[in-house]
Design a protein around this nucleic acid. Structure first.
Length: 321
DNA sequence: AACTCACCCCGCCACA
DNA sequence: ATTGTGGCGGGGTGAG
């Protein structure tokens, strides 16, 4: 049995005190929901915008507030990971509109292959018109499938140390003056309790365990695998010396940081090969691998086949790695 | 194919 | 004495 939630009802559930709707000059942000999206992630995003709107009310800076529009490829009800359905507008209804930001909350990756190419073209138009485009880990696949090329600023803004890619992307909408206040509130009240992490205050009164720091660094590596990142940077994320980081990472995850990075790049390239028609060389660069030659070596070593052979096999059968 | 360079990993050891 | 941490140096690997 599935529950059906209207958008307005949902936002009231997130905050009984105020539905995100503002009378004065506001930034217009669209959240694009894909089938199978995570309700937890949507909740995190909603909390970020709710905190932003409340903070800006307090600070009387209405131009920093956001108005949210929930959309999906076809509109209507979108089903998430726990079978709660949320009503959305179709992209087509907003094609003439220019959003200040579009947030793509991706879902189960196997659904992307079944998306109508016309819908992907509409999505691309929406993204091209938008002021900025953000996405969570799963959202990237649908953006790539649409053919939209993110700007370097959009990529750069996602370089963070947050424990969740949806949260990290949502926080990148926050103006610099409010960023610290809001990210700390969310970490303290939402993320830390839900993930059973002890939150680290700026004054360092509460310490996060070594295991949590290693996991945070591992997630940072996964999220940033498309960039040229180093073990030294990952060690900084974990706030350890490189030597200790290498030692701890191996104990906690069973592999070295560079193996973890290569795994993340390999999985990403597999997904793009299955779900897009991008040339192998372009996929290699998007996945942080220097060239087609490099990605071929990785595929030969791991699967004893070339990226093209992998794509042909998985296009034909629809299987995933 | 051989070379150089940068990076990664790990053993060893000193220190708190 | 034990444990955790970090510096150093050497071997391995990949890119150009």
């Amino acid at each position: 049995m599935q529950a059906q939630i209207d958008v307005a009802e949902y936002w009231q559930l997130m905050d009984q005190r105020a539905v995100v709707k503002t009378p004065r000059s506001t930034r217009n942000v669209a959240i694009l929901l894909c089938d199978g999206f995570s309700l937890f992630d949507l909740g995190l995003v909603a909390e970020v915008f709710r905190e932003l709107n409340q903070s800006t009310v307090a600070a009387c800076t209405a131009d920093s507030r956001v108005s949210i529009t929930m959309i999906s490829m076809r509109g209507g009800y979108v089903t998430n990971s726990v079978s709660v359905r949320i009503r959305t507008d179709a992209i087509d209804e907003h094609l003439t509109e220019r959003f200040d930001g579009v947030f793509v909350l991706g879902g189960a990756s196997e659904n992307i292959a079944s998306v109508d190419p016309a819908d992907l073209r509409a999505l691309r138009r929406l993204l091209v018109n938008a002021g900025s485009v953000k996405w969570n880990d799963q959202g990237w696949a649908v953006i790539a499938a649409s053919g939209y090329e993110p700007t370097t600023e959009n990529f750069a803004s996602l370089v963070g140390q947050s424990v969740n890619s949806s949260l990290s992307a949502a926080l990148s909408f926050i103006p610099g003056s409010l960023y610290t206040e809001i990210s700390h509130k969310i970490m303290r009240h939402v993320v830390a309790p839900s993930l059973d992490l002890s939150y680290v205050d700026e004054d360092g009164l509460n310490e996060v365990s070594v295991v949590d720091r290693v996991h945070a660094a591992a997630q940072w590596i996964t999220r940033n695998c498309r960039r040229a990142i180093s073990v030294a940077q990952a060690a900084e994320v974990a706030r350890m010396s490189e030597r200790t980081f290498l030692r701890r990472f191996k104990v906690v995850t069973g592999k070295t940081p560079s193996e973890h990075l290569l795994d993340a790049r390999f999985e990403m390239s597999c997904r793009l090969l299955r779900e897009t028609t991008l040339p192998v060389d372009k996929i290699a660069r998007r996945c942080g691998m220097s060239s087609g030659e490099r990605i071929s070596r990785v595929f030969r070593k791991r699967l004893a086949q070339t990226p093209s052979e992998y794509r042909a096999a998985h296009r034909a059968t629809g299987r995933s790695a």
